[in-house]
């Protein structure tokens, strides 16, 4: 059930093209990806978000049935924290979290079932940014420091963020963290390939956009020993995420708010 290299490359190509079209148009003008894209869509035609969105909408599927088996496993969290230079403040009020575990009842706080499958009762489940289709954080940000790529990933510009934390008030999932103090002294081993952050800006999981652009899977997906996390293009009917959603019952966190979260949990 693994995604072939070809599929990922295809996915990455489209994703990169989407980014080029929207946010980095000027920076990437004349680049190879831009050229390929203009060929694909037709020279002179303006690239819009919608015609790309029809091709790629990235999504994550987490099979909780596989995940909850080993409650002590933190591989997806460890690999993310290490790669993304996430400081360790312990579980203090200053904590920075991109992917972490919450009890099932807290993660799905609006879907309380007094009688439920013992399999999930009080079990820790992974939570991270849902990279929503209608992200409220993007809507409220006064500087567009947080924005959505055409493939759906909700990005953060740490150089533009003014630290007003309106996005944190708007996020219904508690997915965002603020640098209440300088994080750098609290990073164990700094990964030179990924930026560190400064105090006073907000950050969150971006589904490893830096890897997706290279045709690689998010680190958490790759690290999971149970292969419980699957990542792919929701708009491709043959993708693995679509197959899984077709064959299994899935839930999302707070779907009633209209944010359209793109992390699907199989239960």
């Amino acid at each position: 059930m693994s995604i072939s290299r070809r599929t990922i490359l295809k996915l990455a190509g489209l994703t990169a093209l989407g980014v080029t079209a929207e946010n980095y148009a000027s920076a990437h003008a004349g680049s190879t990806t831009a050229k390929i894209l203009s060929k694909a869509v037709g020279a002179g035609k303006r690239l819009t978000k919608s015609n790309l969105q029809q091709k790629v909408r990235l999504a994550m599927v987490v099979d909780l049935r596989k995940c909850v088996a080993d409650q002590g496993c933190t591989k997806c969290i460890d690999v993310c924290n290490k790669a993304h230079n996430i400081p360790d403040f312990g579980d203090s009020k200053d904590a920075i979290k991109w992917i972490w575990k919450e009890p099932y009842e807290n993660a799905f706080v609006d879907q309380e079932n007094f009688y439920m499958r013992d399999e999930f009762r009080n079990k820790m489940v992974p939570v991270f940014c849902n990279n929503c289709d209608n992200p409220p954080c993007v809507e409220v940000c006064p500087t567009q420091a947080t924005f959505q790529r055409p493939d759906g990933i909700v990005m953060m510009d740490w150089h533009r963020c003014i630290g007003c934390r309106y996005c944190m008030a708007a996020c219904p999932y508690g997915s965002r963290s603020f640098n209440w103090r300088d994080p750098r002294p609290f990073i164990r081993d700094i990964n030179p390939d990924y930026p560190t952050r400064m105090k006073g800006v907000v950050e969150k999981c971006t589904w490893c956009d830096e890897r997706v652009d290279q045709g690689l899977l998010p680190l958490c997906v790759e690290a999971c020993p149970e292969k419980a996390m699957v990542f792919g293009n929701l708009n491709d009917p043959n993708s693995e995420v679509r197959q899984l959603l077709k064959d299994n019952f899935s839930v999302r966190r707070k779907p009633g708010l209209g944010t359209s979260p793109e992390v699907y949990y199989l239960v």
């Binding site: 500087t143 630290g163 007003c164 006073g200």
Partner: peptide, 16 residues
């Protein structure tokens, strides 16, 4: 209340 007060003018530079 701003985490990065020197960037406050970003509100006007990138009106949203």
């Amino acid at each position: 209340d701003l985490g990065q007060p020197f960037r406050v003018l970003n509100i006007f530079l990138y009106p949203t």
